[in-house]
């Protein structure tokens, strides 16, 4: 670490290694917390979107249309607009409209419909014959979800979550533009506003490394659960 920090110090940039480290920590914090919350809420929503379709075992076409419409609205609002338009809600929830916690609110809110649609897609890949077999065994709807549908879709679900985390990293950088903190904020503040190309370059390199790392972790998880 010290040698890395020496190398960083030797680069001619305005941001200090401590600032880089802190910004990286902030980015990870925002991404991890929003990924956890959006998965916790997006997974059930995705399952509901799938099982309430008209040809599915918990068919509720009207509920499905309502949920689908909400999800589409959430998906179609550009993140940057969502972020500023929900500021009152953010202030109510975390007491501030700036900083990493504020960014988490908008990141989570935009990721929930994203996660839900991806997971719905992963569940669509489960062969209908498996659901039928479970029904023939006398499975309850909840058992079909927990014992058949979700375990069979797990590789696809892990893929979806990896995509979500990577997307959250790039969105978190956008949150930085409006004082959200993290690597994005550092890059904008030094690289853009103070013309410090080196700081910009280093933040981008760190972001690239983060994405690569998380993608490989995600891929490894998928391989582990995929027995198809």
């Amino acid at each position: 670490m010290s040698s890395l920090s020496e190398t960083l110090s030797s680069l001619s940039m305005l941001a200090t290694p401590e600032q880089l480290l802190q910004a990286t920590g902030e980015t990870l914090y925002m991404v991890v917390v929003s990924a956890l919350i959006s998965t916790a809420l997006g997974l059930p929503l995705g399952v509901l979107l799938h099982v309430t379709r008209k040809d599915q075992f918990m068919s509720r076409p009207r509920l499905n249309r309502v949920l689908g419409a909400f999800t589409n609205i959430g998906r179609s609002v550009p993140y940057i607009i969502l972020m500023v338009s929900i500021l009152p809600l953010t202030r109510f929830l975390v007491g501030s409209s700036i900083g990493t916690n504020a960014a988490i609110v908008s990141l989570t809110l935009s990721a929930i419909p994203f996660v839900a649609r991806l997971i719905e897609g992963a569940l669509n890949e489960v062969p209908p014959g498996l659901i039928e077999a479970a029904q023939a065994m006398g499975a309850k709807p909840m058992q079909i979800i927990t014992k058949v549908l979700v375990p069979e879709a797990l590789p696809g679900i892990f893929n979806s979550l990896t995509v979500t985390v990577v997307t959250l990293i790039s969105y978190s950088a956008m949150a930085g533009a409006v004082a959200g903190g993290g690597l994005g904020a550092l890059g904008i503040n030094y690289g853009y506003q103070r013309f410090d190309g080196m700081t910009m370059l280093v933040t981008v390199i760190i972001l690239v490394a983060l994405v690569q790392l998380l993608q490989s972790v995600g891929d490894a998880l998928v391989r582990r659960v995929d027995h198809r």
């Binding site: 062969p127 077999a133 029904q135 023939a136 065994m137 006398g138 058949v148 375990p151 797990l154 198809r228």
Partner: peptide, 22 residues
Amino acid sequence: GLRLARHQIGMIFQHFNLLSSR
């Protein structure tokens, strides 16, 4: 009642319908 009755009726299929995750 149907769920209980189904425990008394086994079924096999053309495409087996086994769970790939188990």
